[in-house]
C-alpha cells in the first residue's frame, strides 16, 4: 500500500531540461553506438579514399597498352575522386537508416518521450550526421586525391591541389555527399521504412535519369539540369557536364531540394502519431 500523501522524493533535477545541444549530444552517442553505423561510415570512407588511387593504379599499370586518345581522357582530378558515387550510396543508406532504424525498432518512442517537441530530434540527427559525413568525406577526398596523384606521377599525368577545379572538386564531393545524406535522413523521416526510403533514393538518383533519357532529346535536355542527380554531380566533378547548371548553381538547386524534403519531413514528424 502506498502512502496517502506525497513525501519528499530524493530528487536530483537538472532543471534546465531538454535543450538542442543535449539532444545533439544524445544523437552523437546514438550514431556511434551502433555497429551498422560504424561499418557504413567506414565503407563510405574507404570508398572515397581508396577507389581513386585504385583507379589510378589500374590506369598506370596498363599505361603501355593505352593509346594516345585513351591517355588524354585520363582526368587526374575526377579519377582520383571516382569513389564518390559509392560513398554517396553508403551515406544515403545510412542517412535513411538513422531514422527508419528508430521506427523499425520502436526506439523512436523513447526518443520522443525524452524530447517530446520532436523537431529537436530531427535537427540533432541532421546536425550530427551532416557534420560527421562532411569531416570524414573531406579527409577521405583529400587522401584519395593525393594518393591517386602520387600514383599518376609515374607517368606525369598527376596534378597538384593548385590545379584549376581540384580543390573545388575535393570539397564538392564532400559537400554533395553531405547534402545527399541530409536529404536521406529527411526521406527516412517521411517514409519511416528502410526499404521504402532506400527505394526512393535509388528511384530519384538512378531510375529517374534513365526515364528522362528515353524522352525526346529536346525535352530530356531541358529537364536534365533540374534532376537531383545532375544538379548534385556538377560540383563533385572537375569536368563540366553537358546539359547542366554551373557547379555551384547546380549545388544550390540541390540544396534547395534538400531543404524542401527536410521541411516536409519536419511537418510530418510534428503532425503524425509516433
Amino acid at each position: 500500500m502506498s502512502a496517502t500523501t506525497s513525501p519528499e522524493l530524493p530528487r536530483e533535477r537538472a532543471l534546465q531540461g531538454v535543450t538542442l545541444p543535449r539532444v545533439t549530444h544524445s544523437e552523437w552517442t546514438k550514431l556511434w553506438t551502433l555497429r551498422s553505423t560504424r561499418w557504413s561510415l567506414f565503407l563510405a570512407f574507404v570508398a572515397q579514399a581508396g577507389l581513386g588511387p585504385l583507379i589510378a593504379l589500374i590506369e598506370m599499370s596498363r599505361w603501355s597498352q593505352l593509346g594516345l586518345q585513351q591517355r588524354l581522357t585520363i582526368n587526374p582530378i575526377d579519377h582520383s575522386l571516382g569513389g564518390w558515387h559509392l560513398a554517396q550510396l553508403a551515406v544515403a543508406i545510412l542517412g535513411v537508416m538513422t531514422m527508419t532504424g528508430e521506427y523499425h525498432t520502436g526506439m523512436i518512442r523513447s526518443s520522443f518521450m525524452a524530447a517530446p517537441k520532436r523537431l529537436p530530434v530531427l535537427w540533432a540527427k541532421l546536425l550530427v550526421f551532416s557534420a560527421v559525413t562532411l569531416v570524414l568525406m573531406v579527409i577521405a577526398a583529400f587522401i584519395g586525391f593525393l594518393g591517386a596523384q602520387a600514383i599518376f606521377a609515374e607517368h606525369h599525368v598527376n596534378v597538384t591541389l593548385g590545379a584549376p577545379d581540384a580543390l573545388r572538386a575535393i570539397f564538392g564531393v564532400a559537400l554533395v555527399i553531405t547534402a545527399t545524406g541530409a536529404m536521406c535522413v529527411a526521406l527516412g523521416t517521411i517514409v519511416r521504412r528502410t526499404a521504402g526510403g532506400i527505394a526512393l533514393f535509388v528511384g530519384v538518383f538512378f531510375v529517374l535519369p534513365g526515364l528522362v533519357d528515353i524522352l525526346p532529346s529536346a525535352t530530356a535536355n531541358a529537364l536534365q539540369p533540374y534532376l537531383p542527380s545532375t544538379a548534385s554531380s556538377g560540383l563533385a566533378q572537375a569536368l563540366a557536364q553537358p546539359h547542366s547548371f554551373t557547379p555551384w548553381g547546380g549545388f544550390a538547386l540541390f540544396c534547395g531540394y534538400t531543404v524542401a524534403v527536410i521541411v516536409i519531413a519536419a511537418v510530418l514528424l510534428k503532425r503524425r502519431d509516433a
Partner: peptide, 25 residues
Amino acid sequence: LEARAVHTGRSGYNHLLALAQTHGI
C-alpha cells in the same frame, strides 16, 4: 510502454546513456 522502444543494435547501457544525455542526466 508495452511495445518495445529500444534499438536492438545498441547496448542497454548506451540506450540509457543516450536518453540521459537529452536531459543532461
